[in-house]
Design a protein around this nucleic acid. Structure first.
Lengths: 348, 348
DNA sequence: TTTTAACACGCAAACGTTTTCGTGACTTTC
DNA sequence: GAAAGTCACGAAAACGTTTGCGTGTTAAAA
């Protein structure tokens, strides 16, 4: 049970100074070949590795980035993490995660825990509660301390920082356009309440597609779910509401849902009512999830390229971290990731 | 763009020494009430927080635990992470993640990156490649340096450390027993090659259940998939092999699959062949996944309680980290998490 | 032989904390 | 009024690095 070996121990053992050891390990030409050889051999023997913490303190740089997300048991977010981890590792950074669990206070606490020197920058997506409360002081405080932030997916324009978002508007528009092109005449929208910007944008895309095709939107065909509820409760309520919707408007022949669960529920309800997907009713969801690939029928979706989002966010953040000169420029960019319509069995 | 404020700056500003500031912030009674009040007011004003890195260096303790998993876009692992994060945060620790991507070398590199002072201990699950190569030197080296390790799910007995595993044997046995009790006479097993211990144990559970019911196992009913293949390829091969199996043995009336995908594929193939699940053939999978809840029909599964595994692993690790006295005792425990049969529509 | 230059190494500061110990200025006590 | 004690604070070391600079030794040049 020996601790990790340090420069000091090597120095004592070899009867040289700490600085000599340090320099020898770096092949400094201040040090004689003999000594270099001796030190390096000893270091290798004892498997010396510089202590990261000491380096971080000295360099005021941790080579670690923090990522705070609302939830990890979620395909979208875990794919984003994978993307972040991929480029972070490639560029010599570690990733430390914090889960806000959609709670404002947990988000704040997590940020404070990490902001005190543990990391060089943040990648994060806002919790629903923060979006609701619209209290962004912790973001601004963190940034005013020189800690760069990159937000993804759930962003707000009030916060000035780099962002990576998906083209929700066009993704939705294209999906609805697809339904229209497939001859759907009455397209329902299943969405969330508007406080989440992505939900709002997707709704706008839906409306825009209708408008461009000279279809008058019907408010009755838009179902807005309250997604702050508990998962199970939510699911049940969801299905009954969709059933109401379908029964009240039997002419519905297309559904655009802003997430996977909603789309799947729509298909489930349809099947229960004896409707065939896609013959009687076509369904498209907005998601990167795994359910779509394996549902029956498989679900046509708007893919968000979650992993790519993570990669871009990480690159953006690391670029900012390493470009110490742009400190005063304060140029922020917003990267928009294009969506992609993945056609499967739920559309014709 | 001001940096975070330090003790030194406060000291200079208030014209006292660094130690006075430090003590004042801790309400030391060495310091006069006046000074304490003054320092604390100033510190609050500038939102002083001690620098974590400096603390880590001083205390030789990072209050961070590292978790290395083969894959994050996977319900089982993300649930484990959630469990780890939950406990870690509650006990004042951060979590830093590394992904091995099922690769031996990435696992080694990740461990070395984190082992150099960044963390106080590891929670990890082995990559398939490591399991295949059976090269565990990086585990032993890490432990010999005094860094505690807790392994979960994919463990090997050659490594002496704390472990959290699922009761794969009994989980499988109970599942198969359930099928037998439901009147299945010819139960197929869809599993992986034996190098992953969990696969092996589940196979043994299957055999044991048969034996206890005086059913002679038939080798032809056991399908061993090579899961080192690429996902898509794997999926395709999987379905054709299952189809072969089902066609060659039409009397198969029950299927036990060691993971979610295999179970779903079995259901899919069955449906394609005009078989009804659960009337013609009953299916049980071994998983914590999300697909089971939303498939058609929904899938009966052996739940592994992934989040609980994460929680237990984190508690085990932190206990070990904080019990500096047991250093020489070297008592390792293995926590076994009981599985739970979640009955859904794929069984009667 | 003396001056100069190269060489090989050590010293010390710095990163931001915490904590032990020392010390000067008062206050109390006899 | 001297000795003892209390109070309030500062100096310094330590955690493990890196690095600019100073320095003693030797070899080359004058």
């Amino acid at each position: 049970m020996k601790r990790k070996i340090t420069l000091k121990q090597i120095a004592r053992e070899l009867d040289v100074s700490i600085s000599t050891v340090s320099k020898a390990l770096k092949n400094s030409k201040e040090i004689s070949a003999d000594t270099i050889q001796k030190v390096q051999a000893f270091a290798k023997l004892y498997n010396y590795r510089p202590n990261n913490i000491a380096l971080s303190l000295k360099n005021r740089k941790t080579n670690t980035i923090g990522i705070i997300i609302p939830e990890i048991v979620h395909h979208f977010f875990s794919k984003v993490i994978r993307g972040v981890e991929l480029v972070a590792n490639k560029r010599g950074y570690n990733v430390i995660i914090g889960l806000s669990n959609e709670s404002f206070s947990k988000e704040v606490i997590n940020m404070e825990m990490l902001a005190n020197g543990s990391i060089d920058g943040f990648i994060l997506s806002m919790s629903k509660e923060t979006l609701l409360q619209q209290d962004y002081h912790h973001y601004n405080e963190t940034m005013s301390q020189g800690m760069p932030i990159v937000m993804f997916d759930r962003v707000v324009s009030d916060i000035k920082c780099d962002k990576v978002i998906v083209d929700d508007f066009n993704g939705a528009k294209n999906a609805v356009q697809k339904l229209i092109s497939n001859n759907c005449k009455h397209i329902a929208l299943i969405t969330t309440k508007d406080y989440v910007s992505v939900g709002r944008l997707r709704t706008q895309g839906y409306l825009q597609a209708l408008e461009e095709n000279k279809i008058t939107p019907q408010a009755e065909l838009i179902l807005k779910m309250d997604d702050t509820l508990d998962y199970e409760v939510h699911l049940e309520k969801l299905e009954t509401e969709i059933e109401h919707l379908f029964k009240a408007h039997k002419y519905i022949d297309g559904v655009f849902a802003v997430n996977e669960l909603y789309a799947l529920s729509a298909m489930k309800v349809a099947r229960r009512m004896g409707l065939n997907v896609p013959n009687d009713i076509q369904v498209i969801g907005f998601t990167d999830g795994v359910l779509s690939k394996h549902s029956t029928p498989t679900l046509t979706t708007v893919s968000q390229h979650a992993q790519l989002m993570g990669e871009r966010a990480a690159d953006l953040l690391i670029d900012k971290i390493e470009s110490e000169f742009s400190i005063e420029e304060e140029q922020f960019q917003t990267v928009v990731i294009n969506t992609e319509l993945v056609e499967r069995e739920s559309t014709k």
